[in-house]
């Protein structure tokens, strides 16, 4: 499926606070299969960035290898992109962030990229609490090599060819919480209403934000028996909460004293309004979510929504005491100690 993307834009297309239209956040035409969940996620990224009024060129989008990792070409054409090597996007994102802490870092990866070949980098970027949003487009299979099971395929899930997966599937959210992720969410590519505010909240979080999005592979893993098919996910999706993202300037008019609603203030002064659909669960309480994830697993439920949030998060640059000024903007004067100092060093080596 490849068409020329229409250049037409409605003259009265709505503009965001920066005066940009949604078009300015879009990318090139997707070459993924028609109906691919990943395209919905790309669209949600475009909406989230547009609505948040992020300057597109202040975003750096990075990916690894695989179908999911192709998507940065399909959103934010005015952002620099980096399609790295398989499973190694986290290290490239880390280096980029160390060089310029002022940009917004958006990483896109898949289940093969993050749960298999790049599992090590996935774990360690979380430990370091790198300030980035990390979206896993999780379809339980290797799409680009024609449908082999991935490490997130659930035990017992049936492939298109009819074989049953014998191995334990990796729960990306559970492992991320265990490793110290400070923002963990799960969603479904078919639920734009939930996904967009989650992406907005993740982008507003200072520290590592994981959004694991179940994103069915229409070509290789959408068959009956698959636990990552559209039908299965719709049936087993258990939303923990619905979420509204409240920008910093918006006046809070509603009364939020209802028992099921929680307002969480983000690092940048924005708020998340959480409408709890489940009792006995608090996204700021790690134990309650670890427990909820285990229970859901036993019941074959996929918990979605904001799972965990640490509002006290300290991101990597602050953890290691780096100056506020981006390192890539340091001048030669700030970088080079000069000949006088060198002469003293020489003297100490005699």
């Amino acid at each position: 499926m490849s068409y020329i993307k229409p250049k037409f834009e409605h003259p009265r297309a709505p503009k965001n606070a920066l005066g940009y239209t949604r078009k300015e956040y879009e990318g090139s035409l997707s070459t993924l299969c028609a109906g691919c969940g990943h395209d919905s996620i790309s669209a949600a990224i475009v909406d989230a960035c547009f609505e948040l009024s992020i300057e597109p060129h202040r975003v750096a989008k990075l990916s690894g290898i695989g179908c999911s990792s192709k998507t940065p070409a399909y959103f934010l054409n005015n952002s620099h992109g980096f399609n790295s090597v398989h499973g190694r996007m986290p290290s490239v994102a880390t280096g980029a962030n160390l060089a310029n802490r002022d940009l917004v870092y958006l990483g896109v990866s898949g289940d093969g990229d993050s749960a298999s070949i790049g599992f090590g980098q996935f774990a360690h970027v979380i430990r370091r609490n790198l300030n980035m949003t990390y979206i896993v487009m999780n379809n339980g299979c290797y799409g680009l090599t024609k449908g082999q099971d991935s490490a997130t395929a659930d035990q017992g899930s049936v492939s298109k060819a009819g074989s049953v997966n014998n191995f334990e599937g990796i729960d990306m959210c559970a492992i991320a919480i265990e490793l110290g992720a400070t923002f963990v969410a799960q969603s479904f590519s078919g639920d734009k209403g939930q996904l967009i505010p989650l992406i907005k909240a993740a982008l507003s979080h200072s520290g590592f934000s994981l959004i694991n999005v179940v994103s069915p592979c229409v070509t290789f893993n959408n068959n009956p028996g698959s636990t990552k098919s559209y039908d299965y996910v719709r049936e087993h999706n258990e939303a923990l909460s619905s979420l509204d993202f409240v920008p910093v300037k918006e006046e809070i008019t509603t009364e939020y004293d209802e028992i099921d609603v929680k307002m969480v203030e983000m690092h940048d002064g924005t708020f998340i309004k959480l409408n709890k659909l489940h009792q006995g669960f608090d996204p700021q309480d790690k134990l309650s979510i670890i427990n909820a994830l285990q229970v859901a697993r036993q019941k074959d439920e996929i918990l979605t929504g904001l799972l965990y949030l640490d509002t006290e998060s300290v991101e990597l640059n602050d953890l290691i005491g780096t100056v506020n000024k981006p390192l890539n903007s340091l001048t030669e004067k700030e970088l080079c100690p000069g000949s006088e100092v060198l002469e003293k060093i020489n003297a100490g080596l005699r």
């Binding site: 490239v92 980029a96 962030n97 060089a99 090590g120």
Partner: peptide
């Protein structure tokens, strides 16, 4: 792998 990846990411972004 990660060591060189980070160095490349930083250089890509204009730091030495």
């Amino acid at each position: 792998l990660s060591a060189i990846g980070m160095a490349i990411g930083a250089n890509w972004n204009g730091a030495r």
